[in-house]
């Protein structure tokens, strides 16, 4: 039996595909969570008051100024130590859950700037008109500004999604189930890392290339309606 036949059994292929599914899931959850954080931080940055502005700035600068790997390890290894010291509460962190949260927090710092620039690119007169018809700032954002900012956000936003699919591989280091981790497990089992890693390469490419292809199509469709 060749190495190829030994490694690519149906069971192992399903094992790897499951890992790919987790990678996708982690990326989607982190993107959603990061978007909520990013929108809040973008509003904080644009706030007239100093406290929300400061909090948002510190968040963005700390996250963007430190390695993502460090943030993941801090949250995964540091979390239980901190809760033990403060609340005498010890827990075994779930690597997928904690990893997703860490990637989400990281992504939020990058989407903050994305949201902020897209929101600020909408004409100031739109805010003013909304104000004169009595809409609150939140209503204005939801009804008037974000729908117009959406088109401008879309291309870099999808790029962020692709970055997250790739970045989710960092979670292999804390043992979270995802594509790279699955490849690593098979590699160790069969003393052959090359073939599982090549499989992971192809799987990552299939995901990322398809998403960017879809994004280009969507962009063209949106451009037509202008």
């Amino acid at each position: 039996m060749t190495a190829f036949e030994r490694i690519f059994t149906p069971t192992n292929i399903i094992f790897m595909l499951k890992g790919a599914g987790y990678s996708l899931l982690i990326a989607i959850c982190a993107l959603i969570g990061g978007s909520v954080l990013g929108l809040l931080a973008a509003m904080g940055k644009m706030s007239k008051r100093k406290i929300p502005r400061t909090i948002a700035n510190v968040y963005v600068e700390v996250i963007r100024g430190t390695p993502m790997m460090l943030q993941i390890l801090l949250l995964y290894l540091g979390g239980p130590v901190i809760t033990k010291a403060l609340f005498h509460f010890v827990y075994t962190p779930n690597p997928v859950l904690i990893g997703t949260i860490a990637v989400g927090i990281n992504s939020g710092a990058y989407t903050t700037e994305l949201f902020r620039s897209a929101i600020q690119s909408v004409d100031k007169g739109q805010w003013e008109a909304a104000q004169t018809i009595g809409l609150s700032r939140i209503q204005t954002l939801k009804e008037i500004i974000l729908p117009q900012a959406f088109k401008r956000i879309l291309p870099p936003y999808i790029n962020e999604f692709i970055v997250l699919i790739k970045d989710s591989s960092l979670l292999a280091s804390i043992g979270a189930v995802e594509l790279l981790h699955s490849a690593d497990v098979l590699g160790a089992k069969y003393y052959n890392y090359l073939l599982p890693l090549l499989f992971a390469t192809v799987a990552y490419l299939i995901m990322t290339l398809n998403i960017s292809h879809l994004a280009r199509k969507l962009e063209r469709r949106l451009a037509e309606s202008d």
């Binding site: 007169g125 003013e128 008109a129 004169t132 018809i133 117009q148």
Partner: peptide, 16 residues
């Protein structure tokens, strides 16, 4: 102030 109407030079209608 929402019971004061305001009309802008550049209309500021909501394009979408």
């Amino acid at each position: 102030l929402s019971h004061i109407g305001f009309v802008f030079q550049l209309f500021n209608l909501f394009p979408h």
